[in-house]
Design a protein around this nucleic acid. Structure first.
Lengths: 336, 336
DNA sequence: TGCTAGCAGTCGCTGACCGAGAGTGCCAGC
DNA sequence: GCTGGCACTCTCGGTCAGCGACTGCTAGCA
C-alpha cells in the first residue's frame, strides 16, 4: 500500500497524463495540489513508484507515465466523488425525461448519449428478453413453405424467426397453427417458451401440429441467445488514438458485436467495473480500457452499459457517466 | 479529349498511384505497358496533362498524382472490363447461394461481403417497403394506453409503430381494432396504406374506431420514410487513410445514417455510379469517393448498394464488386 | 531521519546542413 | 515529333550541435 504522499503523486501523474498525453515530470507534480513538497522529493518518490510498478519512464530524462497497475490503483483508491458535471447531468436528465416508447430506439440513442458525454465509444447491451412476457405470437405465411414467427414482448421488442415448413402449408393451416402456439405461449416469458412441451401442441391436422411444434422449437433455440447490442461513437475511437493502425484494430473488434458482449460480461463476471489494458482480455485492445455497469431492473440484471476508450481515459468522468446512465436506464426500463 | 497516348499515361499514373500512394514519376510511366515512349516524352505529355487539370504535382521534382478530373477521366474512359477476380466472384456466388430468408440479416451480411471484397466501407440501403405487400397487421396492447402496431410484409420485414391511445382501451377493443385495420390493410402494399380512408374504418364502438384510425394514421406517416441502412467495414476506413483526423471525420459522417442515404441517392439522382472527392457533395468527404449502384427488383429500383473509400480507390475493382453484388442482390430479392 | 537545493548527466527534440537521389523542364539533334 | 542529355529543383535521410527537460545523486540542513 502506498503512503498518502505517494498516492497523491501518483494521482497527479495520472490526472496530468490523462489531460496532456505527455510524460509528466517532477516539476509539474510538485506544483500539483495535494503535493506540497519539492520536485526533488517527488523525484525520490517517483523512483519508488517506478520500482513498485506504478509508473514507467519512456526513456531517461523523460517524465513518467502511469502503468496499468498505476491506473488500477488510481481507479481503486483515488477516484472518489462519482459526480457528473452539471451540464452533463442535465443532458442525462433531459434524455431520460423524454418519452421513449420503443425500446430499441431508446437503447440506440443511449449509446449516442454516452458517447457524447464521455467522448469514447459507447456500448449498450439490451435486456435479454427472458423476463419480458409474450404479448402476442403469430405465424405469418410468407410463401407456401416459409413461415415467419413473430413474437411481441411486453417491452415492445419484437423477435422474429423464420420457420421452414416441411411441406407446403395453406393459409388456413398456418392460421390454426398460429392460434395453437399462441394459446400455449401467451403470457409466458420468452424463456418460459422452453417449458412448452411438444405434447401440449396437438391438432387434428398433423401438418398443423408439425408446424406448431417446429415454430416453438425454432423460437426456443433462438430467443435466449439473441443479445441486442448497440454501439455508438466509433468515431471517438479515431480521435482518441494517434496511430491509425490501432484505430483500425479497435474498430475491427467493435464490428464483432458478439465479441464485445462477451467482453463486457467477462469484465462484470470478474466483479470489475473497470478493465484496464490487458485486463480487458482482448489482445488488440491492450491500449484500451473499458468501464461497465450492469443495468438493473427490479433488482435483476437486465443489460449492460459501457464505454470503451484508451487506457489514458478519464476514468473519473467515464465511471460517473456510466453509473448514472445505467441507473437511469434501469429506472426507465422498470417503469415502462 | 485526350489522345490515346495521353490517356494511357493518365491511366498509368492513376493505376500506379492507386497501388503505391506515392507520386508517380515519368520513369515508371514510361515503363508501363501501353506507353512505349521515352520518359522525356512522358514528361512533355505530363505537363500538358497537368495544365489541363488531370494531374497535379505536390512540388517540383516530385512525381504527379491524379486530380479529381484525372480520376473522373479514368473512370469514364479507361475503366473497361468490369470483371471480378476469380476468387472474389466465387465468394459472391457462395454468398448468394446460401439461403437467406431474413431480409435484414442478409442485407447486413451483404455489407460485410462487400467490404471484404473491396476493403472499403460498404453501405446497403434496404428496399423501401413500399412495394412489399402486407401479410399481417396486428395491434398488440403493451399497456392500457400503449399499443404496438406490427406489420409483417411479404419480404419478411417487420415494421412496428407505437400507437398511443387517447384513453384506456381494453384487450377486447384492441383485438377488434386490430381485426378492423387488418381487414382493410391486408394485401395492400406498404404504400397502399395511404389509400385506406378513415371512413372505411368504422365500428360500433367509437373507441375502437378511434384506435383503428389512429393506428393507420401512424403507420401511414412512418412506413414511407423509414429507410433501412446497413453499414459495414468502418474499420477499413481507418486502414485507408493515414491521417487520424480524416478517419474521425469520415466515421462521424457514417454514423449519421440518414445522411449517408441521402448522399447515395443524390449521387444516383445525378445519374452517376461514381462520385469522386468533392463530387460526393459532403465537405468532410472531400478525400473520399463513392461507388454506387441501384438494386433492381423486377425492373424497379428497390435499394442501393455502395462502397465508400479514399479518392485513391481501386475504382475498377470497386465498380465491379458493386455491380455484381447489386445485380445478385436484386435477383435474390426478386426470387424471395 | 527526512526533506531540499543544487549539480552533473542523460536523452529527446529542433534546426541547420549536406549529399544523394528522384524527378523535372528544356534544348538541341535526329 | 520524338529522344537523349543536361542543368536544375526539391525532398529525404543522416549527422551534428545546441537547447531544454528531466533525472539521479549527493551534500547539507532541520
Amino acid at each position: 500500500m502506498l503512503d498518502e504522499r505517494k498516492a497523491n503523486i501518483l494521482r497527479a501523474v495520472v490526472e496530468q497524463y490523462i489531460e496532456t498525453a505527455q510524460p509528466v515530470g517532477s516539476g509539474v507534480v510538485a506544483d500539483a495540489p495535494g503535493v506540497q513538497v519539492s520536485s526533488a522529493t517527488v523525484r525520490n518518490d517517483m523512483v519508488a513508484l517506478e520500482s513498485d510498478g506504478y509508473l514507467a519512464q519512456p526513456h531517461t530524462s523523460a517524465g513518467r507515465i502511469p502503468t496499468e497497475k498505476g491506473y488500477r490503483f488510481f481507479v481503486d483508491n483515488v477516484v472518489d466523488e462519482v459526480r457528473l458535471a452539471r451540464s452533463d447531468a442535465k443532458s442525462v436528465r433531459t434524455f431520460f425525461s423524454q418519452a421513449h416508447v420503443e425500446l430499441e430506439r431508446m437503447l440506440a440513442d443511449t449509446t449516442r448519449l454516452l458517447s457524447n458525454l464521455t467522448h469514447y465509444a459507447a456500448v449498450v447491451v439490451g435486456p435479454s428478453h427472458e423476463e419480458a412476457t409474450i404479448r402476442s405470437l403469430q405465424l405469418v405465411a410468407l410463401t407456401d413453405r416459409i413461415v415467419l414467427a413473430v413474437v411481441v414482448l411486453s417491452n415492445g421488442v419484437i423477435e422474429k424467426q423464420v420457420v421452414e415448413a416441411g411441406a407446403d402449408v395453406s393459409e388456413q393451416q398456418v392460421a390454426e397453427a398460429s392460434a395453437l402456439v399462441a394459446s400455449q405461449a401467451l403470457g409466458r416469458t420468452g424463456d418460459g417458451l422452453r417449458q412448452v412441451a411438444d405434447e401440449a401442441l396437438r391438432h387434428t391436422d398433423p401438418a398443423v401440429t408439425a408446424l406448431a411444434r417446429q415454430a416453438v422449437g425454432t423460437l426456443r433455440g433462438e430467443s435466449a441467445e439473441a443479445e441486442h447490442v448497440y454501439i455508438g461513437g466509433a468515431a471517438e475511437i479515431a480521435a482518441a488514438f494517434d496511430a491509425v493502425a490501432t484505430v483500425s484494430e479497435v474498430l475491427r473488434i467493435l464490428e464483432q458485436q458478439y465479441l464485445v458482449v462477451r467482453l463486457l460480461n467477462d469484465v462484470l463476471d470478474r466483479g470489475l467495473n473497470v478493465a484496464i489494458g490487458t485486463e480487458v482480455g482482448v489482445e488488440p485492445l491492450a491500449d484500451c480500457s473499458v468501464v461497465v455497469a450492469p443495468v438493473e431492473v427490479d433488482g435483476q440484471t437486465a443489460g449492460t452499459v459501457g464505454v470503451l476508450g484508451p487506457t489514458r481515459m478519464n476514468y473519473q468522468q467515464a465511471m460517473a457517466a456510466v453509473a448514472v446512465v445505467s441507473k437511469r436506464l434501469g429506472q426507465t426500463l422498470s417503469e415502462g
